Amino acid sequence: MTQTTAVQLVCPHCGVINRIPADKLSAQPLCGKCKNALISAHPVMATDQNFQRFIDKNDLPVVVDFWAPWCGPCRQFAPVFTDVAAEMATQATFVKLDTQDNQMTASRLQIRSIPTLAIYHHGREVARISGALPKGQFKQWLQQYV
Rank of each mutant, 00 (worst) to 15 (best):
F138C: 02
G32C: 05
K139Y: 00
K33G: 06
P69N: 11
R108Q: 15
E87K: 15
F54I: 03
G131V: 06
Q110V: 12
G32E: 09
P134C: 07
I39Y: 03
K139D: 02
M104I: 14
A118V: 15
Y120N: 06
G131A: 06
M1Y: 12
R128A: 09
T2S: 15
M104V: 14
C71D: 05
P115R: 07
P21Q: 10
A127L: 09
E87Y: 02
N18K: 11
C14H: 05
E87C: 01
R19N: 12
Q110H: 15
G32A: 08
P29V: 03
P21E: 13
I39Q: 02
A27W: 09
L117Y: 05
S113I: 10
K139G: 05
A127G: 09
P12S: 10
R128H: 06
L97D: 01
P43R: 01
D101C: 11
Q144L: 09
L97E: 01
L9A: 03
R75P: 00
Y120C: 08
V95I: 13
F94R: 02
Q52W: 07
H122K: 15
C74I: 08
S107K: 14
M45S: 14
I119G: 01
G136W: 04
Q110W: 09
A86T: 09
V64E: 01
A37H: 10
Q144V: 06
D59K: 07
L142I: 09
N18F: 11
V63G: 00
T47V: 03
D48R: 05
P61M: 04
D23K: 03
Y145L: 04
L97M: 05
H42M: 11
P43D: 01
A106E: 05
T116Q: 13
N102P: 07
S40C: 10
T90E: 13
N58S: 05
R19I: 05
Q137C: 08
D65C: 04
Y145W: 13
A89R: 14
S26F: 09
Q28D: 13
I119L: 12
A68I: 13
T5Y: 02
Q143D: 15
K139I: 13
Q28Y: 11
Q52I: 06
G72L: 10
P12Y: 08
L142P: 04
V62Y: 04
R53N: 12
Q140M: 09
M45P: 00
A78F: 11
L25D: 00
Q28G: 07
V16D: 11
K33Y: 11
R124H: 13
F54Y: 13
M45I: 13
R19F: 10
F77D: 04
C31E: 02
P21W: 07
P73S: 03
Q3F: 11
V10E: 00
E87N: 12
T47F: 07
T90H: 09
A132T: 08
V7D: 01
M88E: 09
G131M: 06
Q28F: 11
